[in-house]
């Protein structure tokens, strides 16, 4: 199995996810087996409520699977401790959310610093310089010292992307990253994610926008507990 894993950033084997509220068990993901490769950009589409966010949370180690196995960069991660999951999230995964989720009391570059602060790789290096560099790549060179409230939605989302890229993760997960943005910003963001994908990262984007198809190597659709490739 090991050789198959090597080109797969992510591998799900018979994964099931149930939510339990009181006595009711909601089955959201049922026996899902799928691989995501390095260097590819995946677009995940589907109606509201089909479990796209649930899938992203599982992939991002924010939520556990009810059953099945999850391999991340070749290692079984479906039964790791909270601390081990944190370490994977920090080093291997970059997150982008619909609501940007920046810390309002921190300036743009300080938000980008956050993941680097706990990564031993950057200990003793000039983290601020790297944060600046990342922001400059996203055309935010003149916004480094700004607070989130002083930035437009598109600019905030670009700061969030810089933050997601700060630790140079292997995998980038984005849940409706352009849901609140105009077409122009959407374009900048998809282009940047595509560029990262070309560097060998595995990029997974959940989106309602059909624009995403232009950038995706594979477009997947979730329907009736099934995930299907539509292009």
């Amino acid at each position: 199995m090991g050789d198959v894993m090597s080109k797969n950033a992510i591998s799900l084997k018979h994964v099931t996810k149930n939510y339990q509220t009181n006595d009711i068990v909601i089955e959201v993901i049922k026996d899902l087996t799928i691989d995501f490769e390095y260097g590819k950009l995946y677009a995940i589409m589907g109606h509201s409520g089909v479990g796209k966010s649930t899938l992203i949370r599982i992939l991002g180690l924010l939520d556990s699977v009810t059953d099945g196995e999850y391999y991340l960069t070749g290692k079984l991660v479906s039964n790791l401790s909270d601390n081990q999951c944190s370490e994977y999230r920090n080093k291997k995964i970059g997150f982008i959310f619909q609501d940007y989720n920046l810390d309002g009391y921190l300036k743009a570059y300080e938000n980008v610093l956050l993941p680097m602060c706990i990564n031993p790789k950057y200990k003793g290096t000039n983290k601020k310089a790297r944060a600046k560099e990342l922001l400059e790549e996203l055309n935010l060179g003149d916004r480094i010292e700004h607070f989130p409230r002083e930035l437009s939605g598109g600019e905030q989302q670009r700061v969030a992307i810089a933050r997601a890229l700060a630790n140079n993760p292997d995998i980038i997960l984005a849940d409706e990253p352009t849901g609140n943005l105009d077409e122009e910003n959407e374009k900048i963001i998809f282009e940047k994610l595509q560029q990262e994908c070309k560097k060998g990262k595995c990029v997974i984007i959940v989106s309602h926008s059909s624009e995403v198809k232009k950038y995706a190597d594979k477009v997947l659709e979730i329907k009736n507990y099934q995930i299907k490739e539509i292009i």
Partner: peptide, 16 residues
């Protein structure tokens, strides 16, 4: 709590 959640997503441990 929301910011704490974000930090956790970014890989901060509870102890951090």
């Amino acid at each position: 709590s929301y910011n704490i959640g974000i930090l956790r997503v970014l890989g901060y441990k509870k102890s951090h």
